[in-house]
């Protein structure tokens, strides 16, 4: 109570704040729609994402084709809707790979300390030193092309970030009085780790996972754009944009509309990550 006087210089009284909830609700809504596209794409479009009608090629957005059509007359909205499954599943897999491997490394390093910690964290430093895209491409070259392999490659690039965050959280929690008290209560290393260290350190890691979900969508799209992801004609968001780049000047909707969808989903994931971080802090 009396400690606040020096710390709070703000003399202003009762400042009105914007409502942060509205943007969070919007973000959850966007992500929910994207997930619905992934699971039941048939509900959102009557068109076939693969079969085109040549007569309707390169039509601008219209009531019949809200996102327009591409060079082979396929409905773009249908391709975006059906592409959600590939892109989101890939992002989820990528996050899962990074989350599980990175957290395991980070928790092991943070909780064991000493030589093990040094060794693991230097490996992580090496991972961090390699540019993400280069690392992902190298992994794909080793594993072969395809949606799943692209996702695994993206996941591997995020291991280092997860490992560093998990380690810093574990180290922070390990220094707290309550962890010492838990050892003082006769707790074994594993019991203390399970009961106190993990529950108190993983909140920030979960927030990072949501953040990484957004960037994984971007990275997978990048790989798709470069031709290392899903092979055509499978609809995938990055590939959709890549295929349309020849028509940027003549058919703006082919790149712009899928690009906006990707941007909206990524921003929504970031907003949700921020909310998780706030509530776990």
């Amino acid at each position: 109570m009396s400690a606040v006087i020096g710390a709070l210089p703000s003399p202003r009284v009762g400042r009105a704040r914007p409502r942060p909830r509205a943007t969070l609700v919007l973000a959850i809504g966007i992500l929910a729609i994207a997930l619905a596209w992934a699971f039941v794409p048939g509900l959102f479009t009557a068109h076939d994402p693969l079969a085109g009608v040549a007569a309707e090629a390169l039509q601008p957005p219209s009531p019949a084709h809200p996102f327009g059509t591409d060079a082979t007359g396929r409905d773009l909205l249908a391709r975006v809707v059906f592409g959600a499954g590939n892109s989101l599943a890939g992002a989820a897999l990528a996050v899962l790979v990074g989350l599980i491997a990175g957290t395991a490394i980070g928790v092991l390093a943070g909780s064991s300390g000493g030589f093990v910690e040094e060794a693991l964290m230097r490996v992580v430093d090496v991972l961090l030193a390699i540019p993400g895209l280069l690392l992902a491409l190298s992994v794909i070259v080793l594993l072969g092309f395809g949606v799943t392999n692209a996702a695994i490659a993206v996941g591997i690039t995020s291991i280092a970030v997860f490992a560093r965050l998990a380690r810093s959280q574990v180290v922070r929690v390990r220094r707290t009085d309550y962890v010492e008290a838990a050892f003082g209560s006769g707790g074994t290393f594993l019991a203390v780790l399970r009961r106190h260290v993990l529950p108190n350190s993983l909140g920030a890691v979960v927030a990072l996972a949501a953040l990484q979900f957004g960037s994984a969508i971007l990275q997978i799209s990048t790989l798709g754009f470069l031709g290392y992801g899903a092979p055509p004609p499978i609809p995938e968001w990055g590939l959709l944009i890549a295929e349309s780049r020849d028509y940027v000047a003549t058919a703006w909707w082919l790149t712009t509309l899928p690009g906006l969808v990707v941007a909206a989903v990524v921003l929504a994931a970031n907003r949700i990550a921020a909310a998780i971080r706030e509530s776990s802090a």
């Binding site: 109570m1 709070l8 703000s10």
Partner: peptide, 15 residues
């Protein structure tokens, strides 16, 4: 106690 002091110097915390 501290609220009294903060009121006197006009440094009440936000809210």
């Amino acid at each position: 106690k501290s609220t009294t002091a903060q009121s006197i110097v006009g440094l009440l915390p936000e809210g």
